[in-house]
């Protein structure tokens, strides 16, 4: 079973955000996880609403795995997107993603 969360960029500052039960947040720790097709469609509908309300742009679903209740994207692109440039740890979002899920080289 594939799991998904919804991400987008916040309109006013462009920052990467994830949809949580409390709205769009910069950390994906508490992102709503969609487990079924219907839940995915529901997330997308919420995304479309937020676009219409000019909160975010370009929302899309990201496939994740969930460990200890914390989602982590499967694809390295999305992991980098969630945590910030891997070459500037000073600018990375420490709270965004569990340490072992970061992309390092």
């Amino acid at each position: 079973m594939s799991l998904f969360i919804l991400t987008a960029n916040r309109l006013r500052d462009g920052r990467v955000v994830f949809l949580t039960a409390h709205g769009w947040e910069e950390s994906l720790r508490t992102a709503i996880v969609a487990a079924t097709e219907a839940e995915q469609r529901a997330l997308e509908a919420l995304g479309a609403q937020s676009v219409a309300m000019c909160e975010v742009v370009d929302p899309y679903l990201v496939e994740v795995e969930v460990e200890n209740g914390v989602p982590s994207p499967l694809h390295y692109r999305e992991r980098i997107r969630a945590s910030g440039p891997t070459v500037r740890p000073d600018l990375a979002r420490r709270d965004g993603i569990p340490e072992d899920c970061r992309v390092s080289l």
């Binding site: 309109l11 462009g14 676009v51 000019c54 997107r81």
Partner: peptide
């Protein structure tokens, strides 16, 4: 755009013409 009078589709060409992209983490 921020007031919701322009959609992203309408706004994008304007921002691009001024060198403003939306990248991986931010504008």
């Amino acid at each position: 755009r921020l007031a919701g009078e322009l959609t992203e589709e309408e706004f994008r060409p304007h921002r691009l013409m001024n060198g403003l992209y939306l990248q991986l983490h931010a504008y």
